[in-house]
């Protein structure tokens, strides 16, 4: 479905999502404080070992996530060769690569729902300024629910316009699609109220524990 998650039962899969994110954040800070090629190479090898040997992720699953920046990394390396020196270029590229692989490992071993639960938890200090963290989880879930629906609506409008002879006027379909979606939002809002979404806030601990498990 809509996920880069690779199902599995490894230690890395089972570690709590919040902990994985904390380690990733620490790694990010650590790598930017450090400045030695050995440290960067070590970090890259370590994340690869965790991803491939411990979490049993296929190489492809990691490559898919890192691929979009290959070209950029090559350009960066080239730039440093010309502008600074080999050492700085190597450190910059290895640092980014280690961080990207580590991020890819976390993403591939953590379900979207568990991540959403962490986001909800991270947002809990916002209670102080009047934001309900459970609302954030709800909006994220609603978005996942509506993506295929909006895609369907777009396809239907395109078909209808094609039937009336309008060839491929992409911009022309944006207006009816937006209006249809805005109209639907009114009903969705009513449905949320009718189903008690605006009801008195309740404890969410149980749900979070279940989702993160």
């Amino acid at each position: 479905m809509l996920s880069l998650y690779v199902p599995g039962d490894s230690v890395v899969h089972r570690v709590r999502a919040g902990l994985k994110l904390a380690v990733l954040a620490a790694l990010g800070v650590g790598l930017f404080l450090g400045d030695s090629p050995v440290l960067m190479t070590g970090a890259l090898l370590l994340t690869l070992v965790v991803g491939v040997a411990v979490a049993h992720l296929p190489w492809l699953a990691l490559a898919v996530q890192v691929r979009p920046v290959w070209l950029w990394l090559a350009l960066l390396f080239g730039f440093h060769l010309l502008a600074t020196d080999l050492r700085t270029g190597t450190v910059a590229v290895l640092r980014l690569l280690a961080l990207l692989v580590a991020a890819a490992v976390v993403t591939a071993t953590t379900r979207v729902t568990a991540m959403v639960a962490v986001i909800e938890w991270l947002a809990s200090p916002l209670r102080m300024v009047g934001v309900r963290p459970d609302r954030i989880g709800l909006v994220l879930a609603m978005t996942l629910r509506f993506i295929p629906l909006v895609a369907d609506k777009a396809a239907r409008i395109r078909e209808a316009q094609a039937a009336r002879g309008g060839s491929r006027v992409r911009l022309g379909m944006a207006v009816p699609l937006l209006i249809e979606v805005l109209r639907m939002a009114t009903t969705v809002g009513e449905a949320l109220d009718a189903r008690g979404a605006d009801d008195v806030p309740v404890r969410r601990g149980g749900r979070r524990a279940r989702l993160a498990a």
């Binding site: 609302r135 709800l138 909006v139 609603m142 978005t143 629910r145 509506f146 993506i147 629906l149 909006v150 895609a151 777009a154 699609l177 937006l178 979606v181 805005l182 639907m184 939002a185 009114t186 969705v188 809002g189 009513e190 949320l192 109220d193 979404a197 605006d198």
Partner: peptide, 17 residues
């Protein structure tokens, strides 16, 4: 307002589409 939640979610979905 619940409707605002709906607007936010539906537009996030539009960006995704």
């Amino acid at each position: 307002k619940s409707r605002d939640l709906a607007y936010v979610a539906l537009f996030a979905a539009i960006v995704a589409v």
